[in-house]
Each structure stands twice: as structure tokens, then as C-alpha cells.
């Protein structure tokens, strides 16, 4: 564990709490892509099939939290606050993402086993899981401030992981190509968002696309 990784994981936790706060406080999931949240649930379930494999208490508790919270968010969106979800805004075709990630995972993986291929699939899928949300944002052209804080924390979590990998490469000679490439792509997807978040939200303005 190092500073970057711990901060990254805490940002990831924070992003989920901000999302839950947004939904509970406004009693609405408007502006949130159900498809992105569904993809995250798929990511966590397929990645943490090794849940019973002991790494540390921290690792196990975080895995349980990520699986449970992602499924809870699906429940909030699909059942509790269903009326506030507008599917006509959430039109990104996730079938292509799922198909492409599965294909890539079958071809580019470390070991061709069931668990490993699904782990690789989850890494690739996480990289692109934010696309339906960003697509929704670009369609509506604006977002509630709290939703942008959620997206910022989520993007920051990924950006910090890049620093963690650089740190681990120099201190432990830790190499993980699959995670590096997917993580770099994932972080890059946030660059436009980061720019507008910095220009507008951090200067007290509403998030609006130019």
C-alpha cells in the first residue's frame, strides 16, 4: 500500500457516497446513467470472484463494499426512485461495450482460465463503463453540481491509480500491462470532463457544456 493507492481507493469510496447522497437528498436519480451503474455492478461482480481469496482485511472489506453498494445503487435507481429515471436520456448501446470487452478479454489476458478471463473482462469494462454517463451528460449539456462532484471523485480515483502504478514500478518493479493500458484509457476519457469541471464548477458556476 502506498499514498497514491490509498488516496485513490478513498476517492473511489467518496464517489460512491456522493452518488448515494445525491440520490437520497434529491430523492431522484435524474442525470445518473443506469447503464453506467449497471456496468459497474458487472465490473465488481466479475472482478471479485476471488472474494474468498485472502489478501488483507482491507482488501476483503473494500470488495464487499463495492459489490454491495453497486447493487444497492441499482436497486435505488430501478425500484425505489424508478419514477425519476428517464431512459430516453440514457441511450448509449452497452451491448457493444460488453461484447468488445469480452472479446478483448478472451484474446488479451494473462492466463486463459475462467476466473482470469472474467477478471480481465472487468478491467476492460471498467475502462469504458463511464461512457453511457458521459454520453448522457453530453446529450443534456448540463449537470447538477453534486453529480459533477461524483464524476470528479471517480475520475480522480483513476488518475491517482496511474501515479500508484508509476510508484509501484519504481519501488517494487510491479508490472501489469493489462491494468496500465485500460487505466490510461479510462483516465483519458475524463479529460474533457475534468477541463469543464475545473473551468466552471470550481469557479462556482453551473456545469454546462460549451
Amino acid at each position: 500500500m502506498n499514498f497514491f493507492r490509498l488516496t485513490a481507493d478513498l476517492m473511489h469510496l467518496l464517489s460512491i457516497f456522493v452518488l448515494l447522497l445525491k440520490i437520497q437528498k434529491t430523492r431522484s436519480c435524474s442525470g445518473i446513467s443506469f447503464k453506467t451503474q449497471l456496468l459497474y455492478a458487472v465490473v465488481f461482480v466479475t472482478r471479485y470472484l476471488d472474494l474468498l481469496k485472502w489478501i488483507s482485511l482491507y482488501n476483503t472489506l473494500m470488495k464487499i463494499f463495492f459489490i454491495a453498494s453497486s447493487i444497492y445503487i441499482l436497486y435505488l435507481m430501478k425500484i425505489k426512485f424508478r419514477a425519476t429515471y428517464d431512459p430516453s436520456q440514457d441511450t448509449f448501446r452497452i451491448e457493444f461495450l460488453l461484447g468488445a470487452c469480452l472479446l478483448l478479454a478472451l484474446v488479451f489476458n494473462y492466463t486463459f482460465t475462467f476466473i482470469e478471463v472474467l477478471w480481465t473482462f472487468s478491467i476492460y469494462l471498467e475502462a469504458v463503463a463511464i461512457l453511457p454517463q458521459l454520453f448522457m451528460l453530453s446529450r443534456t449539456g448540463e449537470a447538477e453540481t453534486i453529480t459533477t462532484h461524483y464524476l470528479f471523485a471517480l475520475g480522480a480515483y483513476r488518475g491517482l491509480y496511474l501515479l500508484n502504478w508509476i510508484w509501484r514500478f519504481y519501488t517494487e518493479h510491479h508490472i501489469d500491462w493489462i491494468v496500465w493500458v485500460a487505466g490510461a484509457i479510462q483516465t483519458a476519457l475524463y479529460s474533457d470532463f475534468f477541463y469543464i469541471y475545473y473551468k466552471k464548477v470550481l469557479h462556482g458556476q453551473k456545469f454546462e457544456l460549451p
Binding site: Y110, T111, I175, V179
Partner: peptide
């Protein structure tokens, strides 16, 4: 590089 890849990150 070990083939038994350890996934210790989240």
C-alpha cells in the same frame, strides 16, 4: 514475469 498473476489491487 510470473504467470501466476496476483491481483492485489482493487
Amino acid at each position: 514475469h510470473n504467470t501466476e498473476h496476483k491481483h492485489d489491487e482493487l
